[in-house]
Design a protein around this nucleic acid. Sequence first.
DNA 1: ATCATTTAGTTAGCATAGCTAACTATATTG
DNA 2: CAATATAGTTAGCTATGCTAACTAAATGAT
Lengths: 130, 130
Amino acid sequence: MHSAVLHLLRRLRVRDRESGIGPAQLSALSVLVFGGPRSLGELADAEQVRPPTMSRIVSGLERAGLLKREATEDGRRVRLVATTKGTKILWEGRKRRVESLAHALASLGEVEKGRVRELAELLPEIVRKI
Amino acid sequence: MHSAVLHLLRRLRVRDRESGIGPAQLSALSVLVFGGPRSLGELADAEQVRPPTMSRIVSGLERAGLLKREATEDGRRVRLVATTKGTKILWEGRKRRVESLAHALASLGEVEKGRVRELAELLPEIVRKI
DNA sequence: ATCATTTAGTTAGCATAGCTAACTATATTG
DNA sequence: CAATATAGTTAGCTATGCTAACTAAATGAT
């Protein structure tokens, strides 16, 4: 299962590359777009990455005009917000990934599709427990 | 599903880091250990990576004493073979991953476990079609 | 048989991404 | 007000991905 999951992800990333944005940047931006604005530390936690790493990922996204750093009441924190451009790019990427998966799933029988559906619902729970 | 798979992989990689070997090296070595010796180009294909990338990954593994480059009849090709040390390290890593997954799966009911099992068998087929 | 082409790998050079250690600036607390 | 804690950044290392350009070996065409 570990191996299959690894290769599934690798294939999907090939499509992601079309967005012209690195995988870590893409994943971080998706948290902002689909989960709303948050601080750098929160984003680092969500992405299971250290603050310096997230700091650089955010710098790249900012340079590309995909997010903005905004000041907060607490002078130490920043609020990271996806720009319109960032949001648009992400929705296009999601569309591509869904197309790839849909293509692969289309040739499966109804029974198999049902199994995939069941596991997709189960996975987040499993992940939380690891 | 894409998101859940991404985070599942990320969690498992945390355990993999304990091996003191990078994720790409670990994955390439696992192909040799569990799939047998092969050429650099074949390994690059299996890992969905370009030859120069695989060349450097292999160099790292060789430097660490985890695999050997052997000559073949065709003077251009090399045969990559995991060493005893490489094989041992990989089995220990597999053990750690299995422990992590087992821990997460242990709390599931029998029905859910059955679903996971069915999908684990289905995944490689899906991956091949993407 | 020789010269051109194809194939397998490597080297060089660039960008992204992960880390720790050390720093700055702002809040909080004693 | 001084000491400490918290949020981010900077610097510097390694690993991993790419393309372009190279070497060496095998194949093929005349």
